[in-house]
Design a protein around this nucleic acid. Structure first.
Lengths: 247, 247
DNA sequence: CGTATCCTTGATTCGCTTCAACATTAGTGG
DNA sequence: CCACTAATGTTGAAGCGAATCAAGGATACG
């Protein structure tokens, strides 16, 4: 239990869940009104993480899961020879840390892509609350299940799509998640580098860059560094399913 | 709610969990002795699935998770254009169906690789039991978490390993799982085809076949169709971490 | 025993990676 | 505030690993 980052405990100052406008993206969703107020005791504290700093690292002991209140993260796993695989990008309202429950130890790194803030949900307390609040248990199971389904669709992407299909799927997914958060579905700022996108999609950064350029030439998107405008969302979606030739 | 396969209800005839020698691989693990006897009511029924038949299909309504009592399965997801990605191979003592919790609908197909038998665990009953049996809730969370970690390591494999590294990782994993089940770690029979292995590893069947042949030439394994002998387990493990050149 | 399925192996092609050079932006300190 | 430097992004040319195409062989199944 090494205190890597100073935990900014603000409990009492501000209620964690009952006043949070993210609840419908987050763990407290689908919970009755009376139970809802009890959730403020579920969140232990809040923590601020600076850009490029880890929320937790692989091999850290698992004690809590985290709900992202502001900012965004990447999760990655490393091979001893230095190869990195980004396993996901998480944004506001999403949950981090589920990988640690099985073994009691985290199996990946969670790194902030920008200055961020998370709610710390001690796992022991979550289990206890889940036993008495029916909706909480179910919502937690749903979140884990959706993570599994998401991972399966990433396996589909990594195992059987070509480079431009992968990037089209990535952009479409980003757009959908922006929509769910009330942001523009057609215009957004990528918080991650080309290399991180490449690692996520199983491609090299040059390939990612070339695919971006090609999409721009075709009038599907407009790219200015990390700023993306989607000009033809339907065109992108078509790209995902159609591999050019193959008879 | 279409009754696709006849459910072979044997309740009462034989207690499901308390007399099952698989419990330490399965859901009931880590549960106190008194609670253990109650688990027989958790399992609704048992079902036999013939080789090549589905336990469930994508888009089927989700009602239960399944514990494999005998046999083995593959899970796969399909793209509309026909491409298939095998997302996992499940064997005795493992749990199937977790993908359905999030949406209430299954998101993949589970197909028996041989004549198999599963315990049907109605999800509503599981949630109810988990609320009163502390160890069951925790064990269920552990199983889901481990599935997520496993999926992440598959993403690492699909995203950043070369063909022979992938097959070496696959064989090493199979060997470990055989060990956990009390089977020989060095000699086993693959239930799946080269094409299914290829789909799982993001490779074509010819590449899988060539890699098998190459491993045999190097004296790492001995291959006779689906029958595999591991001759140099350490050699296989070394292959996973070392990509040949790259400076 | 015949047929369909599965597996192996070789030759060729193609998509992505690698290598390399340069452009642009962001970050830092004088 | 600007100069300097590091980090990030773009683009081109060459190389390589796996896919594709193709043919033959082994095995399982009815």
């Amino acid at each position: 239990m090494k205190a890597t980052t100073a935990p900014v405990t603000l409990t009492g100052l501000k209620k964690a869940c009952s006043q949070c406008n993210l609840f419908e993206l987050c763990l407290p969703f689908g919970i009755s009104e009376t139970d809802f107020l009890r959730l403020d005791d579920l969140v232990g504290s809040q923590r601020k993480i600076k850009r490029q700093q880890p929320l937790y690292r692989s091999a850290d002991p698992f004690e809590a899961i985290y709900a992202i209140r502001a900012g965004s993260f990447k999760s990655d796993v490393l091979l001893e020879d230095g190869r990195e695989q980004v396993t996901g990008f998480q944004m506001t309202g999403e949950i981090l840390g589920l990988d640690g429950i099985g073994t009691g130890v985290h199996s990946c790194n969670a790194i902030a892509l920008e200055d961020s803030e998370v709610c710390v949900i001690p796992y022991a307390r979550l289990e206890e609350f889940a036993r008495s609040i029916e909706g909480l248990q179910h919502q937690f199971h749903k979140i884990m299940s959706r993570e599994i389904v998401r991972d399966h669709s990433m396996m589909l992407l990594l195992g059987s799509m070509r480079a431009e299909e992968r990037l089209a799927a990535f952009l479409t997914n980003m757009s959908q998640r922006c929509t769910a958060r009330g942001f523009s579905p057609t215009e957004f700022h990528l918080r991650m580098t080309r290399e991180e996108i490449g690692s996520y999609l199983g491609l090299k950064l040059e390939t990612v860059s070339r695919a971006f350029s090609h999409f721009q030439e075709k009038g599907l998107i407009s790219v200015q560094q990390k700023h993306i405008c989607i000009l033809d969302a339907e065109g992108l979606k078509k790209l995902i399913q159609h591999q050019p030739c193959m008879h």
